[in-house]
Each structure stands twice: as C-alpha cells, then as structure tokens.
Design a protein around this nucleic acid. Structure first.
Lengths: 197, 197
DNA sequence: TTGGTTACATACTACATGGTATGTTTAATC
DNA sequence: GATTAAACATACCATGTAGTATGTAACCAA
C-alpha cells in the first residue's frame, strides 16, 4: 500500500511542524514557519487541515505517537526483570532516542505543559497517548507481580504514573541542569526501583 | 520605607504580567495584554523596562521568587522530622499555595519548560531560583543526617534534586490528570521518603 | 477528448505584536 | 512660583499572523 503524493505532503507538513513545535512551542510556531522549509504553500496547508488547531491535534495522534510508542514498547520488553525494563525504558528515552535532546526535552511533555490548560482538545489527545504508556507500564508491573518479582500489594497504576511523573520531571529539570543530570537521576531512579519489594 | 508611586506601577505591571504569563505562557502574553487591565499604557511599560525580555527576567527574580520562596522556607521547617517536612513542603506547594492551581501548574516549572531552551538569560535566572530551593532541601537533609534520621551514605544533593524533579513532574501530570492525581502522588511520595533509611 | 474533482499556488485581508517617537503631566528642587 | 527631570500618555510603524478568496495545474473517470 503505497502513499499517494497528496498524503506524502500531508505527512511532510506534519513532520516539519512536529520538529518546529518541539523546539519553539505550538503557539510560537507559525504556519509560515512550517511551510517555508518545504516546497509547499498555504494552499496545501489549508487543503489538508482546516485550521492550525486541527493540525496540532493530528500531530499528537499521528507523528508524536509514532515517534514515541515503538521505542517504549521495545525498551520495556527487553528482559525478564521488570526493574531492568523500567530502568531501560527511561534510560533509552532520555539518552537513546534519535530525535529528543536534553535542551528541548520531550515533545509530549512540552505540549502538555503548554497546551493542556489552554485547549481541551489538545489535553484529551495528549491524555490518550499518556494513557497508552501508562497501560504499557501497568501490564509490565502485573507481569512482574505474577512472576514473583514484586509484591502484589503494590498498585500497578500508582507505580506506573509515578514512573511517568519522574520522566516528566527529569525532562523539565534537564532543560536547566543539562545532560549530566540525566545520569544522576537515573542512579536515584535505580534506587527507587530496588526499594520496591 | 514606603514605595514611590513610580515603583508601585512597576510592581503592578510585574504582578499582572506574572499572572498572565503563568496562565498563557511568556511568548503568548502580549504587552498590551498586560497593560489593558491596568490603568497604564505602553509609555509606562517602556519607561520601567527597556524590552519585554528585560521584564521577563525581572519577573523571575522579583515576583516569582517572592511568591514561592517564603512558602518553601516555612513548610520545610515545620517539624523536626525531615520526612514530614519534605512531605509537607510538596503538599503545601501542590494544594496549599494561594495562587497556583492544578490546571495551570507552577509558574516556575512552566517558564522553565517554555523558555529555558530559547533564552539563556531566562535559563540562568530560573536556575538561580532552582538552586536556592535545592540548597534549602540539602540543608534540611544534612540536618536530618546529623540528627540520625537518615544515613549519611545518602548524597543530599541527589535527594534534593530528585524531590524537585518529582515536583516538576507532578505539576506537569496534574495538567492532564487533574487534581485527584496530586493525592495519589503524595501517597507514593510518602513511600519514597520512608524507603530512605 | 472532455468534464470534473483533487491538490495545490498566489495574492490578499484584518488583526495583533514589539517597539519607537513625541507629547504631556506630575513632582521634586531651587 | 519657575525650572527641570521623572513618569507617564498618545499616536504611530514595521513586521508577523491565521485565515480567505481565487486561480491553476494535475489527474482520473466517462
């Protein structure tokens, strides 16, 4: 199933918008900014998206999801030890992801921070991605509990959200403290995982 | 030492700018936005600040610092138990602070997220505030270690940064999950504090 | 080939934005 | 009370912005 030329320009616009919004933010990225690098004009943009908001929503479930989800699934299923898996998941996200840098953080975290309070549609789309990640971690924890690696007293949901919270936090802190903090954080994260009996 | 009328308008501008930037972000808040509610015009603004950037920098060390710092110092010195103190510090920040809401998060976290990668002066000013908080927590941990509440094997700096990381993370997550998550998080944070031997 | 829809390009508008130039009022000093 | 600088107010400008109106080339079915 090959992609049509029209569909490929749609993807091009979304990809470039994703890169720019990742670095400058959604509101600070203009449609002209997105198009100037590509060989398309506003006519193409408004043919594929009825507004900038519509494009932003599409970004979240299209590019952002495809960029992050496979990496998550791969990292979390590396070994049989859930501690190693959760550690590897955050480590790969922080220092092994091809498009994310310490300077600009994580596109999902950034967009939540900026747009969740301002636009309900953005919030819901971002929450959907977050929920998928949460479920992925929960399943891994339940698996670990079944395998006797972790007490069943723990609520998988709480741990899952806590781990995501840590990730969101360290992505924010990294913008101020620089990449060296990632290593410091990962050590303490390891301690936390080992404290889970 | 009473404040002059000129100084009071300067403060008014900064206060109002702080409120608006807190909700909409720095780049999305226009100077006209800031002034329309006040009884001053652009002449006043550019008399007190040579640019929007200069005003933003002043915001961080003036209003933002004065709004957050006293609350931190008060909360962390409540009891003799460092665990209770750190817990109370985050709890008070999350659900007891007069101006912060779950929806809009924390002004400091927001500004770091938005501006740290884009403007080095912002980053440095924000980092200075962060460093003060970090030192405050470190001192409390060192005190606890001296009082035998915590092993001296722990590096106070690492714990301090880890706690701040958690706060930054939960402020981000709260924007998506709502206020109920604050309570969930605080329980798991308590578990973390108790895991520190 | 023709007709029509798709997939854009071009030109434009109304409005917002940071910043400036210049005028005017207030307040302190003598 | 006159002078002068501080503390604003007003009007304006160049630029950027989301969105629109309209034109046109490519493609596809009949």
């Amino acid at each position: 199933m090959k992609i049509s030329k029209a569909e490929s320009t749609r993807i091009e616009i979304l990809r470039n918008a994703f890169d720019l919004i990742y670095q400058k933010g959604y509101q600070a990225t203009s449609i002209d900014d997105i198009l100037v690098k590509l060989q398309v004009t506003k006519g193409a943009f408004y043919y594929h998206f009825k507004s900038k908001e519509e494009m932003g929503i599409a970004l979240i479930s299209d590019v952002m999801h495809k960029e992050l989800w496979p990496a998550l699934k791969k990292s979390i299923g590396s070994t049989n030890d859930f501690r190693k898996n959760l550690y590897k998941m955050l480590k790969d996200l922080l220092i092994g992801h091809p498009i994310m840098t310490c300077e600009y953080g994580c596109p999902s975290v950034n967009l939540i921070q900026e747009m969740a309070p301002l636009n309900e549609r953005f919030r819901k789309a971002l929450k959907k991605n977050l929920n998928e990640w949460q479920n992925l971690i929960e399943e891994e924890i339940i698996r670990a509990q079944g395998a006797g690696q972790l007490s069943k007293d723990h609520d998988p949901k709480i741990i899952a959200l806590y781990v995501i919270t840590l990730y969101h936090g360290v992505r924010n802190m990294g913008k101020v403290l620089g990449k060296t903090y990632y290593a410091t954080f990962l050590k303490e994260f390891e301690n936390y995982l080992n404290s889970l009996k």
